[in-house]
């Protein structure tokens, strides 16, 4: 039996982390949390999380940034907003999860090979090029970049979609105002 200490020293805490979460859209109200657990109770994904949403809010409030940003929980949020509308304290939990995801990406602490950032990059490139997205292409590229085996697994799905006229891998939806769109998206200071 391996014995592990579970004590936390105050030096592991960072009030700066709390301040940062509170300063981001959605994070404002986390300090109002009464730890009732309604968010976890209504969350359809809470049973797949390593920490419940309530614990994430608590840890963020206390400044245990490492625990928060390394948790699988923030990546399991599907933004169904059940927690946000049910929270008795009016905490915008879904938006707080978005804020935490972005903080994790900025710090590079998201799970390796986790496809969300890849998906986002692919998505952005496609929107920038065409102004619209093509779900079939998006899925194919995502699978190629992250787990190409999935492409094979989904071959049958592809056939189904072709059969029902829902597949549009080779059809280009492009908008006229691409220059306009590029002007909107060309924010120099920001990485693409």
């Amino acid at each position: 039996m391996k014995i592990k200490q579970s004590i936390r020293y105050d030096s592991e805490r960072s009030s700066q982390f709390t301040k940062e979460v509170v300063s981001r859209p959605g994070g404002e109200m986390i300090q109002a949390c009464i730890q009732c657990g309604t968010c976890s109770g209504v969350c359809p994904l809470s049973n797949y999380m390593d920490r419940t949403p309530r614990q994430i809010i608590y840890l963020a409030r206390e400044g245990f940034g490492d625990e928060v940003l390394h948790s699988r929980t923030i990546w399991m949020c599907t933004s169904c907003y059940a927690c946000s509308v049910e929270c008795p304290r009016g905490i915008k939990i879904t938006d707080a999860m978005y804020a935490l995801k972005r903080m994790a990406i900025e710090r590079g602490t998201y799970p390796r090979r986790f496809p969300i950032p890849v998906l986002a990059r692919t998505f952005f490139a496609m929107v920038r090029r065409n102004g619209r997205t093509n779900e079939s292409q998006l899925a194919a590229i995502l699978f190629l970049k992250t787990n190409w085996l999935q492409l094979l697994n989904n071959a049958r799905l592809g056939l189904d979609l072709i059969r029902t006229g829902r597949f549009s891998m080779f059809k280009w939806e492009r908008i006229e105002g691409r220059a306009e769109l590029n002007a909107i998206l060309s924010d120099d200071g920001k990485p693409e």
Partner: peptide, 11 residues
């Protein structure tokens, strides 16, 4: 009844 057992830390 679906609830988080906050003392247990699970749903």
């Amino acid at each position: 009844i679906r609830v988080e057992d906050t003392l247990g830390g699970f749903v």
